[in-house]
Write a protein that binds this DNA or RNA. Structure first.
Lengths: 330, 330
DNA sequence: TTGAAAGCGGTACCAG
DNA sequence: CTGGTACCGCTTTCAA
């Protein structure tokens, strides 16, 4: 089914059908009705590929995330999609599983689809990809990487502050043996968190620590915890790169009959919903995904944010939240 | 950047560039190299919209889910995407949040994009939409709804069996006061589970029960549990429509200082990863998402499944799994 | 208010 | 092995 057939049936030209379908005011009411009737009878659906091609814009935004299974990313996706829909865009989502190769495929795909804006919320970003995207002139937002210019914006969360707060808090509770559970991506922001951890912990002369990494999943968190204990190290506090992995850690501690927080304190990061639902609820650091999603949209669709310049650096401050997974050192 | 420019720079015709880019063997090695060089220099990305339009196929599959935040759906998404990618397709995902209106939008979008196959894994499906999709001749798979024909397949999970096993098991443990926590979608499969619950529980003359519903989320599960207790009913066992909500229920019970399973038994459904990570790990019913994802793909892309007829009914049997959230009635 | 026609960027068939 | 070219379905001037 295409415009031509609808036009034939409605007894008008394809130009008129196009106008009617797109709600362009020029069309007379009676004509419009005839067109819609014909379209309905023929079970007509505008071909969006053709529309994008002819129109020069796809009315689609893209979001690439490292791991949509982790609610942190999904929360951003959700608000971004809502904004997009509200403004007549659709959101194409893609997952990289933290793999550089997949990231490259996703980027090519998004560019190939000629998305009108692209948000890249991944930690494995590499400069050559940023350049690649930059050269296409597609408005883009990167997360914790790259620098603002042209049509590229940049959202930067101050992890360092967050981790510092966590470490300070634990130290004030007399903890001295720390473990850091990260995931495999070596670059920012994990890298940043890890570095921040090292810096913070190094400030205390009596502190001992150990760092382990595993995949960003419940299993990954659990394995990481297992690894720590297998090494013989006995932390009094386990600081996790995010809540998702922390839930895995909690599970392993339960297995080992260690009580949280009496025997070991555990902290997460992100403040995903699950952090409130774990047992015990996690002490964590809140990252405002709503705000990030919103700002991302505004950066991608400048018309939606009058007064705010495109291509800017957006800094987000995290917020420390104490729940029940932390307590005085044993 | 388009074919023409690449052709000019490489000193060949656009037909040749097209062939080279698409790895059609006819092209001579030297020519191919010239083309790729030119393409790289010009930062060329094939316009996928144009390709879909001209080629008559989009090389994309669509998946519409009720709630991608629920790992049940996400697990299916994951394997479907893997299969798709392995076969040169991309997967377009969309979320309905259980809203009929959004479902309709998503369907229109997928048809508009001319996906080569569409999986609709939602519980709020309505017959008119099935017809709509049917008339487009796009191969489709529905979950627990519609009937197999033409190019439409149909995956049906035997929930009834699963719920029956759960209820029987609890009854054998001397439970007699049951609560069922569902989510708001009234149609299959939730409806089916709910009905199955009623049938199963009605078989025992001494059984009492109560049914509540809330949104499919952690919060929804928690609220549902709160609602049960607010009503004055004191169940010895809470049967949840899925694991995701069950985790919310567990949280509320903790709040009420009720021990699981000593004071109350709780069961989930689906067997998502989180079910093993909750405290206590959930007794649940396994639904093989991997298999569902795989079968869905095969139904959508018949070439991938030689020997298997397109448009068939696929029946999946769930499997009862006992963990630690269930025990003898108090 | 409507129609005719020139693209948009590819694909694929037909010649050579 | 390569080039020419007729579409694919829609948007968008330009005229009428």
């Amino acid at each position: 089914m295409n415009l031509k057939e609808v036009a034939k049936r409605a007894g008008v030209s394809i130009a008129t059908v196009s106008r009617a379908i797109n709600n362009i005011p020029l069309v007379k009411g009676a004509t419009r009705r005839r067109v819609f009737k014909a379209a309905a009878e023929l079970n007509y659906f505008p071909n969006l590929n053709a529309r994008s091609l002819a129109g020069g814009r796809s009315r689609a935004l893209g979001m690439i995330a490292s791991n949509l299974e982790n609610p942190f990313f999904f929360d951003i996706f959700r608000v971004l999609e809502n904004r997009a829909r509200a403004h007549g865009y659709e959101l194409l989502a893609a997952n990289t599983d933290y793999q550089a190769e997949q990231l490259e495929r996703c980027v090519d795909l998004m560019i190939g689809r000629r998305v009108d804006g692209l948000a890249v919320i991944v930690s494995e970003m590499d400069p050559h990809l940023i350049r690649k995207i930059d050269e296409t002139d597609i408005p883009a937002v990167f997360y914790d990487v790259g620098s603002a210019k042209h049509r590229m914006s940049n959202i930067r969360v101050r992890y360092k502050n967050g981790i510092e707060r966590v470490v300070e808090y634990l130290h004030s509770l007399q903890h001295s043996r720390f473990a850091f559970v990260g995931h495999h991506s070596v670059l920012c922001p994990t890298g940043e968190r890890q570095t921040a951890f090292l810096e913070a912990v190094s400030r205390y002369s009596n502190a001992e620590w150990r760092i382990v990494a595993n995949e960003d999943s419940l299993d990954g968190g659990r394995s990481a915890a297992r690894e720590i204990f297998a090494s013989g190290f006995r932390p009094t506090a386990i600081i996790c790169v995010n809540d998702f992995m922390a839930v895995g850690v909690l599970r392993e501690l339960r297995e080992q009959k260690l009580r949280v927080p009496e025997d070991v304190s555990v902290t997460g990061f992100d403040n995903i919903k699950l952090a409130e639902y774990s047992s015990p609820p996690l002490t964590t650091v809140h990252i405002p995904r709503d705000r990030i999603g919103l700002l991302t949209f505004e950066a991608l669709v400048p018309e939606s944010a009058i007064g705010k310049p495109p291509g800017r650096e957006i800094v987000v401050d995290p917020e420390f939240i104490v729940r029940e997974s932390t307590g005085p050192a044993p």
